[in-house]
Design a protein around this nucleic acid. Structure first.
Length: 585
RNA sequence: GCCGAAGUGGCUCAGUGGCAGAGCAAGUCCAUGGUAAGGACUAGGUCACGGGUUCGAUUCCCGUCUUCGGCUCCA
């Protein structure tokens, strides 16, 4: 913890240095905020009419080193609001901050190093000249002042700083490695998916290989859900606008929904979510308490109009397929259902070798009672729903953190936050407690006492969107999928053309055991074929030459480079089949 | 959507105001091999798209689309 603080101080000090250098190089520039962040720091600037480009970063770094020589310490002085106003009259951003500090009745502190005066809350190195040595500016980006789209966009410079050169190099190296396992890069290399300008942005096309991975994932999820008492249904991916007006989604989601299509007398819309469709199934007949909980699950295509700048490979797309489900239950059953939903996501994660605490963590996403536009108004119900979710997490002894203002409009949720390889978090799965939809749709069940009662709806996703799941998994496995997910599980490599016929016999046997195999019949050397199978991350290579043909064996090599020697086909077949069954890697 | 950068054979990338380049991949032929790239030859491009400047634009300018790094948003 102490170390973290020191590191933050180092990086924040480096942000000061960056600001000083930029202000010296481009007088008239205003610096805004410059905090330490997880892997470095940033500093925001208003450059006015000056345009700076990536190439300027080197120049700035040089200036930083020059100035650093004069920075012996951080002089910190407490000043009055009036003094701060005077000192920063030229800088609207600092002025705004000074006014806020004044309101919060906090001491206003300024820092001075060399010629550079800044307004700052603190957190610096004692001795910047000695401490700041191993830093690098990384990138240039736009960022809204105070994070609001309504404000002016400033120029942000990202950089990083470490106590030692070794750590800095290690970090830069890690960035390179991260780029190598980017799912977009691997997806292209392994031929899993493509994009087409004519089809449109954010609309990936899966190749046969990509579709194989996707199909295996879907089968896995559907099978597991069926085991756990879900009924898998199929509902149309479009519906009348009125359905979403009834659900109340329409006003909240209008901006991210595709515009309605007029067909004869109907106005249809591509669905942005599946819940109301499932409610219609529920309402198709009267329901008894004996039927509850009803768990409707669906591999559900949905459409959201993401803004162009928000699209990223398979991670953010405009049509995605959710492993969706809506559990309709009595209020008494809700807790148990939520627990079971969390248990399912744990099971799914475990199958992929994802570790709680390391790869993912739970977030309790709460609503803000004051934001009536964003959240359905019912303070009592919110309280109850949030407590229910909190209790579930506590009873399960799950470590979790709470996040304000992250709920759905109809209720709070538990989000399973997944860390991708570059350390960035995305919501992978989610479990939501909904007390609004039952009212909106007038969902009822007949209880023991013969009276109509209102059920609760638990929205949940066991594996999130399959597109996003695939992106995660490609990066997680670096493209080397476990055997059960591998698009091609076995590559048969005949050493000479003489061996092709025999190879075909083997292929047929593999196929009849439901193993995905191919033969490399190209006129290439065996070495070259091995290399290609290896770069394609194919788990097993069966090499067949004259010797194997004569002995009726196969020589087995794995993608890790291991030579398993020759064996009978049945032997390796059993091994592979077992691995597929166990979903081991 | 906003700020910034980029778009050249299937892929990775050079390059230029005056006939468009390499490596890999592909095709043909030779070689028929023993655990990470055998050799030769051939073919392949409206230099993202649309407009403008120019005798001439892949190159310069404007617009559009797409992609990338961020911001905002989000499954």
């Amino acid at each position: 913890m102490e170390n973290d603080k020191n590191l933050d101080n180092l990086r924040h000090s480096c942000a000061h240095l960056l600001a000083a250098a930029v202000l010296e190089l481009w007088p008239g520039t205003h610096n805004a905020i410059g905090p330490a962040i997880e892997n470095g720091f940033y500093q925001d600037f208003d450059f006015g009419d000056v345009k700076i480009v990536e190439e300027d970063l080197g120049k700035i770094e040089q200036k930083m080193r020059e100035i650093l020589a004069t920075w012996d310490n951080f002089q910190i002085k407490e000043v009055s609001a009036a003094q701060a106003r005077k000192d920063f009259a030229y800088n609207p951003y600092k002025l705004e901050l000074a006014e806020e500090f004044a309101k919060e009745v906090k001491a206003i502190t300024e820092t001075v190093q060399g010629n550079f005066l800044d307004l700052c809350k603190g957190g610096h190195l004692e001795n910047p000249k000695q401490g700041i040595k191993h830093f690098k500016l990384l990138s240039l980006a736009g960022a809204y002042w105070r994070g609001s789209e309504k404000n002016k966009m400033l120029t942000r410079i990202y950089g990083t700083c470490f106590p030692t050169q070794k750590e800095l190099d290690g970090y830069l190296n890690m960035l390179e490695e991260t780029k190598k396992r980017d799912h977009r890069k691997i997806g292209k290399e392994l031929g899993l998916f493509v994009f087409s300008n004519l089809v449109g942005a954010g609309l990936p096309l899966l190749t046969a290989k990509g579709a194989t991975v996707r199909r295996e994932l879907e089968r896995f999820i559907v099978d597991e859900e069926l085991k756990r008492g879900y009924q898998h249904v199929l509902t149309p991916p479009l519906a009348k606008v009125e359905l979403y007006e009834t659900s109340g989604h329409y006003p909240y989601y209008k901006d991210t929904m595709y515009p309605p299509m007029n067909v004869e007398e109907e106005k249809l819309i591509l669905r942005p979510m599946t819940c109301p469709h499932h409610f219609m199934l529920y309402k198709s007949q009267p329901r008894s308490y004996k039927e509850l909980p009803i768990r409707y699950a669906e591999i559900s295509p949905q459409f959201r109009y993401e803004r162009s700048g928000e699209l990223t490979g398979l991670m953010r797309v405009r049509m995605f397929t959710l492993s969706d489900a809506h559990i309709i239950c009595t209020p008494e059953q809700a807790k148990q259902e939520i627990k079971q939903a969390l248990n399912l996501t744990d099971f799914v994660n475990k199958t992929f070798g994802l570790v709680k605490g390391k790869n993912y963590r739970f977030r309790l996403s709460l609503g803000d009672r004051n934001e009536e536009k964003k959240y359905f108004k019912d303070d009592v119900a919110w309280e109850k729903a949030e407590n229910t979710l909190r209790e579930v997490l506590k009873e399960n002894n799950e470590p979790f953190f709470e996040a304000e203002n992250e709920a759905a409009f109809y209720g709070p949720k538990i989000d399973i936050q997944m860390k991708n390889v570059s350390g960035k978090e995305e919501t992978a799965f989610t479990v939501q407690y909904d007390f609004v939809m039952p009212k909106r749709f007038n969902l009822k069940y007949i209880d023991k006492d013969g009276k109509e009662k209102e059920p609760v709806v638990v929205h949940r996703s066991s594996a999130g969107a399959f597109e996003r799941l695939m992106a995660f998994l490609i990066e997680h496995y670096k493209g080397a999928f476990p055997v059960w997910l591998s698009p091609i599980q076995v590559q048969i490599i005949p050493i000479t053309d003489r061996n092709i016929k025999h190879a075909q016999n083997i292929l047929e046997q593999l196929n009849s055991s439901n193993i995905r195999a191919e033969i490399d019949v190209r006129s290439e050397t065996m070495q070259s074929k091995i290399r290609d199978a290896q770069t394609q991350k194919i788990p097993y290579m069966l090499i067949i030459g004259d010797r194997e043909e004569k002995e009726d064996t196969v020589a087995v090599r794995t993608r890790t480079g291991e030579d398993l020697g020759t064996m009978k086909l049945d032997q390796i077949l059993d091994k592979i089949i077992k691995e597929i069954e166990l979903k081991s890697s």
